[in-house]
Amino acid sequence: MQQTWVGGHQVPHPETATGLDHRKVLMWVFLGSECMFFGSLIATYLVYAGRSVVGPFPKEILDIPVTSVSTFVLLTSSLMMVLALAAISRGDVRGFRVWLLATALMGATFLGFQVFEFNHFVHQGLTPRTNLFGTTFFTLTGFHGAHVTVGVVWLLSLVGLSFRKGHVTQENSLKVELAGLYWHFVDIVWIVIFTLVYLIGVTTG
């Protein structure tokens, strides 16, 4: 009952009980599950907030201006992502490539910021072993970064696939939509992390 390719073209999906595509239902079920994954990581971070025995503490080390910029980049990448989807939905493959490449580049930029940040922290003496803050901070933001990395790879392979005939077309724009859903989810997780870990974290201690 899944899609089949015949001669490089997608055969229309047989109708489903709800009229919704299997893959899209799967993606939303997955994202519902991911809420619990990040929820548990965030719960751990918050429960341990302020319980570190030794420094460095969040207030001393988190850099709000720099992280604001990377947050801004990730948010904007989400806009690029929807524009890429809009382009492929109207059959504009070139536009799709441009917007999607922009999305992936911004994702990579965000990752660059994160690498810079982690590196900086290590030089300042904060590693995952240093204290509870380091342990929970690196784990939470590291898992988010891993998700971004997977997203960047996914987006880039879609760009690559769009050069092969019949793989990314107006008819199967769902492929792009699925990647988009994942990407936006990773974005909203960051919205939560930025607020709880950075903005509130630095204000309260």
């Binding site: 751990t44 319980r51 025995v53 509870l132 342990t135």
Partner: peptide, 10 residues
Amino acid sequence: TNFFVPSAGG
């Protein structure tokens, strides 16, 4: 890491 290490506050 220190998640469950009491001496580090875990």
